[in-house]
Amino acid sequence: MKKRLYLYLLFIVLLVMSIFVGVSDIKIQDIVSLNKEAWFLLWTSRIPRTLAIILTAVGLSISGLILQTISKNKFISPSVVGVTDSAQLGILLAYLLLGTLSLTFKLVFAFGFAVLGSFMFITILNKIKFKNEIYVPLIGMMFGSIVAAIVSFLAYQFNATQFVDTIGVGSFTTKIAGNYELLYVIVPPLILAFIYMVQFNIIGIGEDFAKNLGVNYKRTMMIGLVIISMVSAAIFVVVGSIPFIGLVVPNLVSIYYGDNVKKNALDIALFGSIFVLIGDILSRMIIYPYEIPVSLTMGVLGSIIFLYLIYRRVYHAK
């Protein structure tokens, strides 16, 4: 209980910092005195950005939890198994076939290809009899690399490399401005994810076990993959690619709270929000008043934590 209380307090502190830290200073006395410029900046930039950070963090963390549960592997996430690369392929094809599109159309194409990519990965996984914690992520990375290679080939072939480079960078700055509302589409899938969390845990044990408990294995699997694809596609379209969140956050929470998926879901959402808030605040402060992409900051932090998780697993195995 104390750990959770500390997390809530840290979350509130970071929330306030995220609102007040930035190039343009917002002071508390300006807010209290109803300064028009301060309130305009607050409502048009800082609050939308903070909401986008929280939605992104919760979406990627819960998506990683679902994928790890249904695939029975702790070392995979949507970005590892090619779901994000498939969404990127969908956006690129939409751009090449239809030209400049609104974010809504990009989301539709990204979602369709993300669903296709996730189903292809799960199908490949089900065809393989020998599975372990290292082998499955390697398969996912190989699949993702194939999709990424297709993206690179098409981009070079049709002179769209600059477009691909632009959509691939994760950032809460220019990409969020005026577009954060599109992230609200991930709220219904996230609510559905919390409702189905017990069923995801059951199908993660095995198809026969799920049938014995009266859980429709294929339907629940499809719901899980659609949730993962929808969330990953929306975040990729609006924010870009942010690595490691769906991979390290569920693992870190399970170390301290165990593997009760339903019980851990809220803690994972909270810890994921804290993790991304820290990364975003660091991105704003490292070379202040300039800002580096949050994908770079999260990549460094996430890789350090991921190495720790691997070392911890090896150490305990001995």
Rank of each mutant, 00 (worst) to 15 (best):
V147R: 03
E133G: 04
N132Q: 10
Y135G: 15
I122K: 02
E133V: 02
G140R: 13
F119V: 03
K131A: 11
Y135E: 15
S118F: 04
M142K: 13
V147N: 09
N126L: 09
K129H: 09
M141R: 10
K127D: 01
F121V: 14
F130L: 14
N132K: 05
M142C: 03
N126W: 01
F119R: 00
S118D: 09
S118W: 03
I146T: 09
S145T: 11
E133Q: 09
K131Q: 14
F121Y: 11
F130H: 08
K131M: 14
F130G: 01
K129V: 05
Y135M: 15
I122Q: 03
I124C: 12
I128F: 11
T123K: 10
I122P: 00
N132Y: 08
E133S: 07
N132S: 05
L125D: 14
F119W: 12
V147C: 12
M142Q: 10
M141D: 06
I146R: 04
S118I: 11
S118R: 01
F143M: 10
N132W: 08
F119D: 07
P137C: 00
I128A: 06
I146M: 14
I124D: 15
I134W: 01
I146P: 00
N126V: 06
S145K: 01
G144S: 03
V147L: 04
F143I: 11
K127C: 01
K129E: 07
I139L: 15
I124P: 14
E133F: 00
Y135F: 15
I128K: 13
M141L: 15
I139G: 13
M141A: 12
K129S: 13
N126E: 13
S145W: 04
F143K: 07
K127T: 03
S145V: 04
S118G: 10
I146S: 08
T123Q: 11
S145H: 06
G140I: 13
M120N: 07
M142A: 08
K131H: 11
K127A: 04
I124W: 10
T123W: 12
I122N: 02
V136E: 07
I139W: 13
V136T: 13
K131C: 06
G140Y: 05
N132V: 10
S118P: 08
E133H: 00
M120C: 08
I134K: 01
I146F: 12
I124F: 05
L125G: 14
M120E: 04
P137Y: 00
E133R: 00
N126Y: 06
I134H: 03
M120K: 02
M141P: 01
P137G: 08
F143S: 06
I124Q: 10
G144D: 07
P137D: 01
M120G: 01
V147Q: 02
I146L: 14
T123G: 05
L125M: 12
I128R: 12
K129Q: 04
Y135A: 15
T123R: 10
G144C: 05
G140M: 14
N132M: 07
S118A: 12
I124T: 11
E133Y: 00
N132T: 04
Y135V: 15
G140E: 09
I139C: 12
G144F: 02
I128H: 12
T123F: 13
G144Y: 04
I124S: 09
P137N: 03
N126P: 05
S118T: 12
I124N: 05
I122L: 06
